[in-house]
Design a protein around this nucleic acid. Structure first.
Ligand SMILES: [Zn+2]
Ligand SMILES: [Zn+2]
Ligand SMILES: [Zn+2]
Ligand SMILES: [Zn+2]
Lengths: 153, 153
DNA sequence: CGAGTTATTGATACACTGTCGCAAGTTTAT
DNA sequence: ATAAACTTGCGACAGTGTATCAATAACTCG
């Protein structure tokens, strides 16, 4: 599934995810649209429960089951990336399919995406010594973003 | 089994962790010894619940609360490394304090430790573009270990 | 458009993980 | 031995995620 779109704005993400949903034979229902809208408007990583709470406050909210079901699909299709290290909750960030990493700010929680990746080539010697056949990896970076740093100074 | 130095055996880990426990002013009680024994005997990553279940089957088992309390301490002191990507459960692998990464076999679950790390230097250009001040990172590798691969062939 | 087909929803009940507070029990120091 | 301090385990609890299934909504096609 190649995504030819060049601008990766929230609105484009929103539209492309819906297109992909339909292409997968899934229906674009009202509850699903509400979920996609909320995710598109999110400015950083979020947990499933944050989404549940936010939609609960809305008129015509989606149920917890529906939310979790769509989150699962969006992640498996690559439209969300799972943030593993954020506690034991299911946490995600909006994403474009493809290999990438996230740089998470420990102060404000914003996540930047880094698509460049040389991890496997740099780790290859160590893996060769182990005779380990690599299939993939997860990398998350922690630090302070430029906004938070200038504010603190 | 290409682990670095020969003194990082399970038995040495077991002993050193107990020494560290005492040095921290904590008491080395019977339940805690049972937990350390089980972890020392583990051959790969494990979840908190696996440990709970294993000790429940033993005579004079430790309670869930005691187990979780010690796991927390062991992780914060660096004697266990947390495996974030293994579902939503608290999963750990035995570890020696220091920066490292794990290569987890997706077939047998064994985890090898890789102490060599060039992640931050290889990612530095991308972070510089973001003006992101890095404090740390988590990297987990997935693949198939040499044992599982030769067995399949 | 309307009927038929199929996917989807949401309510509820449930299982599982992990946490908390506290009285009773251990360990250690004197 | 006694006292002080730490630790345990129970049990109750909260949070997170899953399973079920009848009712409903979305899509398809004529
Ligand atoms: Zn920030
Ligand atoms: Zn990568
Ligand atoms: Zn293996
Ligand atoms: Zn590293």
């Amino acid at each position: 599934m190649a995504h030819a779109s060049s601008d990766q704005t929230p609105a484009t993400w929103r539209h492309s995810a819906e297109v992909a949903l339909r292409a997968a034979g899934l229906r674009c229902t009202f509850p699903r649209r509400a979920i996609l809208d909320w995710i598109a408007a999110a400015t950083g990583p979020f947990t499933a429960e944050q989404l549940v709470a936010a939609l609960e406050a809305q008129h015509g909210s989606s149920s917890r089951a529906t939310i979790y079901r769509l989150l699962d699909w969006l992640q498996s299709a690559g439209w969300l990336t799972r943030i593993y290290s954020d506690g034991t909750q299911h946490a995600y960030a909006r994403f474009w399919p493809g290999h990438h990493h996230t740089a998470v700010c420990v102060r404000c929680g914003s996540a930047a995406v880094i698509s460049e990746c040389h991890v496997e080539e740099s780790i290859r010697p160590a893996l060769a010594a182990l005779d380990f056949e690599i299939h993939g990896h997860v990398l998350e970076l922690y630090g302070v973003c430029t906004n938070c740093r200038t504010r603190a100074d």
